[in-house]
Computed example of a mutant assay.
Amino acid sequence: MKVLILGLGHVGKAVATKLKADGHSVVGTTTTEAKVAELSTLVEQVFVLKGEETDKVIAAAEGCDAIIATVAPNVRNTRTKEERETHYHQALELSCQSAAKACPRVIFLSSFSVYGDGGVDSAPISELTPTSNHEEPSSKYYQKAEQEVLSNAQGCVLRFPDMYGAPGDIDFPQRVKMAIEYFGGKAIFGADAPLYAIHFNDVVSSVYHALNNELTGIYNVCDNENIPSTNKVVFDAICDDNDWLRLEFLNQIKAPNRKISADKIYATGYAVEHGDPNADVVARAQSTGQGA
């Protein structure tokens, strides 16, 4: 099999390594010329392009059986809604539009943000739950990107929560510290949403699973056995653990308000291997009475 990885970031590089070890042919893309030499040790050919450059994506995908789209905007360019409007549109919708034109078999790494808060239903959020939050760019353009991928019958969308554990990634206490120092102690998401998170290695294995098992359609990917603590419970515990002032939650970006079901992908034989990364700090806070 020949595969194009659109976006050779941490996930793209790890998937490429796994595919090459199995004897597949892998090519990939980057937007940065300076990274070509390093990336050339991982894939057979590196193309320097932006996902919105459709003709270049089509040329890069020549002879490919599948495209794995791991594209994502740079978070440093997404502090305001206006910035998110520009960068999410370019990085997500236009990239997937190009990929879908280049190859009918596209696997796109999407986000739980498409559900907004999940609505008023009390049942677990599944792939059949209507999407919402259509005005917020960080949700809207994931939805538009999904639509491009699913315009082909062979398209596959994997919806993920926030990822942690990638090489060089910052942990959750460091993320809270960044919110304090970089965003003035304010969090743009809501307090009461469960803080779902997925380990980098589980993301990689789910992409590999979807490709090898020829999955099509939409799949939620998360721990299907446990519901994590809410944003407020987790981040209050982290702040208390480090003697920091607690964050203020602005509730500008909606996040799912209840359990998210991964029954569909679990039924195909896949399961995550890593549990809740914040369980220990929450348990410490509860044991001292701070997490009440």
Results as ranks from 00 to 15, higher is better:
Phe235Pro: 00
Ala123Ser: 12
Ala21Ile: 02
Thr216Cys: 12
Pro228Tyr: 04
Tyr142Cys: 14
Ile253Pro: 00
Cys239Glu: 01
Phe183Asp: 11
His10Met: 08
Leu109Pro: 00
Val106Gln: 01
Pro173Gln: 06
Thr288Arg: 15
Met1Pro: 08
Arg175Ser: 14
Val43Gln: 03
Gly155Thr: 03
Ile265Phe: 08
Cys96Asp: 11
Val114Trp: 05
Thr78Lys: 03
Glu52Asp: 13
Leu92Pro: 04
Ala262Glu: 09
Gly7Tyr: 08
Arg159His: 07
Pro124Gly: 07
Gly12Pro: 06
Cys96Met: 15
Asp280His: 12
Phe235Thr: 07
Thr17Val: 09
Leu215Trp: 02
Thr268Asp: 07
Asp263His: 07
Lys35Cys: 11
Ala37Val: 14
Arg76Lys: 15
Thr31Leu: 06
Asn133Met: 05
Val176Asp: 00
Asp241Val: 02
Glu38Ala: 12
Gly12Phe: 01
Met178Trp: 15
Cys96Gln: 13
Ala191Leu: 09
Leu128His: 12
Asp192Ser: 15
Gly28Met: 04
Asp240Ile: 11
Pro277Asp: 06
Tyr266Pro: 04
Gly185Asp: 01
Val157Lys: 00
Thr32Val: 10
Asn220His: 14
Ala153Thr: 13
Glu225Asp: 11
Gly63Leu: 04
Thr54Pro: 00
Phe249Gly: 01
Ile5Ala: 02
Pro124Phe: 06
Tyr88Cys: 08
Met178His: 13
Ala210Trp: 00
Pro277Tyr: 07
Val3Trp: 00
Glu33Phe: 14
Asn152Asp: 07
Ala66Ile: 03
Gly165Thr: 02
Phe189Gly: 12
Asp117Arg: 03
Asp162Pro: 08
Thr17Lys: 10
Ala197His: 11
Ala179Cys: 15
Val75Ala: 12
Gly155Ala: 05
Glu85Trp: 03
Glu38Lys: 13
Ser111Arg: 03
Lys101Trp: 00
Leu128Lys: 15
Gln290Asp: 09
Gln90Asn: 15
Ala16Gln: 08
Ala179Tyr: 13
Val207Ser: 06
Ala60Ser: 06
Glu52Gln: 15
Pro104Tyr: 13
Cys96Tyr: 10
Lys232Ser: 12
Leu247Tyr: 02
Val48Asn: 04
Val46Leu: 06
